[in-house]
């Protein structure tokens, strides 16, 4: 009887749960929530390699929900204490050496964040793909049996430079593998690759992300050193008073 009940549950419930997860919205939500929980606290290393220079930065990152993020640079010495606060769609940078908070204006949203291949806009809109783009599940061009393939096209009201974004997601564990950014002419401009999938903070996540800007011949490698999805921190950590605190 128990077995029959179990089979019945398996037959009736499992397909619905798989369907929910494999819907475009479900997959996107998984990607959006990959590195977040209700809150998170992580330490990561960012290595930027360009034609002209190379730099490694260690950062501490706090996040709350999908909108609030605080990033503090721990090293190198010259940049130590620089903070970036993101509240909703707005961003501020704090520079301890000059004790100044600067709001990132809309005109600078497409500028590089801390010299990396990520733009300020990437940080602000990192978790709003589902809101800003029309998503369509298509057949993966090279390996449809292994990967889901989501194609995102911006909604009319979305302000963006990307004409299309494609995301490849592993079917076996719903882990994103590659995210490609195209311009309005359909040319490939940036590629973000996810790797180093491992258990961190109780969740399976890709611990390494590499963003390559194709026409600049540069790349930014982000490696999670630790992540805690149930951190304990002050409620007002995402505030200007905390931003200025050294």
């Amino acid at each position: 009887m128990k077995q029959i009940f179990g089979i019945a549950i398996f037959v009736f419930v499992f397909p619905f749960s798989v369907l929910a997860e494999t819907s475009v919205e479900g997959l996107l939500d998984k990607v959006d929530r990959l590195y977040r929980s209700d809150s998170s606290h992580a330490t990561m290393e960012m290595k930027i390699v360009t034609e002209n220079w190379e730099r490694t930065t260690v950062m501490e990152v706090w996040s709350r929900g999908m909108n609030d993020t605080l990033i503090k640079i721990l090293s190198p010495r010259k940049d130590k204490g620089i903070k970036t606060l993101k509240l909703g769609n707005q961003m501020w940078n704090y520079f301890p050496k000059i004790n100044k908070v600067l709001k990132v204006p809309p005109s600078m949203m497409m500028n590089s964040w801390m010299g990396s291949d990520f733009t300020n806009d990437d940080l602000v809109k990192e978790n709003t793909l589902a809101e800003d783009y029309h998503a369509k599940l298509e057949e993966h061009p090279s390996d449809p049996n292994q990967f889901y393939f989501i194609v995102l096209r911006p909604k009319n009201e979305t302000v963006t430079v990307w004409g299309k974004i494609s995301i490849s997601i592993r079917r076996q564990d719903f882990m994103p593998v590659e995210q490609i950014y195209y311009n309005e002419d359909g040319e490939k401009k940036r590629v973000m690759e996810f790797s180093g999938i491992q258990q961190m903070g109780g969740k399976m996540i890709p611990a390494v992300m590499e963003m390559r800007t194709l026409n600049k011949n540069s790349r930014t490698l982000i490696r999670y050193k630790s992540i805690d999805f149930k951190p304990v921190f002050s409620k007002n950590i995402f505030s200007f008073s905390q931003l200025r605190r050294k």
């Binding site: 220079w53 730099r55 010259k78 940049d79 620089i82 940078n93 590089s112 801390m114 010299g115």
Partner: peptide, 8 residues
């Protein structure tokens, strides 16, 4: 900055 940092 020449290393991509924000000089301040």
């Amino acid at each position: 900055g020449a290393d991509g940092s924000i000089a301040n």
